[in-house]
């Protein structure tokens, strides 16, 4: 319950935070702290220094870019996301209420969730399905990467120690799009046993012209299921086509197992919820 002792610095600018990260291997960023503090209370994480970026104005806010996409500042809380134009994306409306509870959604940040990269966090599934971009800052400049490929392992990402995740770029809502998130929760922790986000683009004649499938809880990191997307595109989204595509959601990935869900059950739940998410997304697109 009591974290191990650490030094604390409240950063007054992104540059200051980046400077500390560059010079102190033991420094760790904290924003909302909803993922990090529970680990620290159990002393599973014992950072020597916390750099609090929670009050940096340049990391706050949701704004519309010139191309219609949304730039969501890393410090945007889940609750704020629901009060932003991002709610026009159905998958966001689905996924946010599935995350933890009101208290966590009031304090937990989008950037924190992405950077922490819990293998069973809900939000990354939606970001993968939406083909979101991540804006990353370091003292050498700013770079953008796709969410796809960013999550690399349990609590491991493409973020270097001296970088800060500054924003998440969400696509502009499209008239031909439908999206949804479906999951089954582990009752005690509230984390998904399997969670699948689906985005589909449906053209004339009901043809599926594009798809994004993000999966969480199933493997050691959230991933984008290209196999499912490829199988879906070009079909008219019949029940059979959806089921056939959903069946590919696990592939040859190593499936996680614990007392709540063995490999077989978890894999089966990934398939069921892939199908449900795709069907719900298709229904919304039509």
């Amino acid at each position: 319950m009591i974290p191990a002792a650490f030094d604390y610095t409240r950063a007054t600018s992104v540059e200051e935070a980046l400077g500390i990260l560059a010079s102190d291997e033991g420094a760790k960023l904290i924003a909302g702290g909803q993922s990090l503090l529970p680990l620290m209370k159990l002393r599973l994480a014992q950072p020597a220094r916390l750099v609090d970026i929670g009050r940096l104005p340049e990391l706050r806010g949701v704004s519309k870019l010139d191309d219609g996409r949304l730039s969501v500042g890393a410090l945007t809380t889940y609750a704020e996301l629901m009060d932003s134009p991002a709610v026009h994306l159905a998958v966001i409306r689905d996924v946010v209420p599935a995350i933890a509870d009101v208290q966590v959604r009031n304090r937990g940040t989008i950037g924190g969730a992405v950077a922490h990269a819990d293998p069973a966090a809900d939000l990354p599934a939606a970001l993968l399905a939406l083909d979101a971009e991540l804006v990353i800052q370091s003292s050498s400049g700013t770079r953008s990467v796709k969410a796809d490929g960013f999550f690399q392992g349990p609590f491991a990402t493409g973020l270097a120690h001296d970088e800060i995740l500054a924003a998440v770029i969400l696509p502009a809502p499209r008239g031909d799009a439908g999206s949804a998130y479906a999951s089954i929760q582990q009752r005690a922790s509230g984390y998904p046993i399997a969670g699948v986000a689906a985005v589909v683009f449906v053209g004339a004649g009901g043809l599926v012209e594009g798809a994004g499938i993000g999966v969480t809880g199933v493997s050691d990191h959230p991933y984008r299921a290209h196999e499912v997307e490829d199988a879906l595109v070009g079909t008219t989204g019949t029940a059979d086509a959806v089921a056939a595509a959903a069946a590919l959601v696990v592939g040859d990935r190593e499936v996680s197992a614990d007392i709540h869900a063995g490999r077989e059950y978890r894999a089966a739940m990934a398939v069921v919820h892939a199908r449900r998410a795709i069907e719900a997304a298709l229904a919304r697109a039509r």
Partner: peptide, 16 residues
């Protein structure tokens, strides 16, 4: 409530 929003005070540092 912190600035009007419900939060878990066990999951927030006093300095925050």
């Amino acid at each position: 409530l912190v600035d009007g929003h419900a939060v878990k005070s066990c999951t927030m540092l006093a300095v925050q």
